[in-house]
Design a protein around this nucleic acid. Sequence first.
DNA 1: CGGCGGGCAATG
DNA 2: CATTGCCCGCCG
Length: 223
Amino acid sequence: MGDADFAGCREHFPNGQPPALPAGLTGLHALCFDAFAVLYSSETRTPVYVAQRLNRASLQAARAVGRSDHFYAEARLPASARAQLEDYRGSGYARGHMAPAADMPTEAAMAQSFSLANMVPQDMGHNSGPWNRIEQDTRQYVMRARGDVYVFTGPAYLAARTSRIGDSGVAVPSHLFKLVHDPATGRAWAHWHQNQAGPQAMKPISEEALVQKLGIDFLHGAD
DNA sequence: CGGCGGGCAATG
DNA sequence: CATTGCCCGCCG
């Protein structure tokens, strides 16, 4: 979309400031949703990152919202840039939410969370196991936090050769990250997992270490 | 063990 | 298209 600066949904970002990106990225599309924002890459056909603002009230509201389970290709993207349902079907990978369905505070946001613009090809065991634990731990943290908590979630492509699925060639991440920032405490930390089943390093890394890995300055301008 | 949240595919 | 049943991993 031409909405390259998230003009319509800055509320999902700390201090209303989207991350600073490394030079040279192309094919990017900024997408606003009710409860999250996606910077989408037409090269990988996955998000670069997904941004959320969470708080206790939004997660309490989310508990009353039923999971929709209706995945869909993102019609706001050019057809040539979209991930398609057929790309994931039979691929052996799960359609892994970046902004989790269980975080969504309204029915509309729940439905929107099933856009393939919010998905990456994820190892099934990783998604239902260690990653699900990270998501639940993050919700538990937010429920106990004083105010708004900002979360960035997305894939990393650090393998020598990135494998792809489907006719569109949706790129399979080597890693997934989730950065949590609590302005009330000034703290930030990041989960960094390989996109595979089995034991993971559950110890978070620093925000600085994540920035070093990805070249994305998530919290520039944040306190 | 059951429940939950993350998914899948077959069936009408 | 929605419904149904199933798998996975983790937790209390």
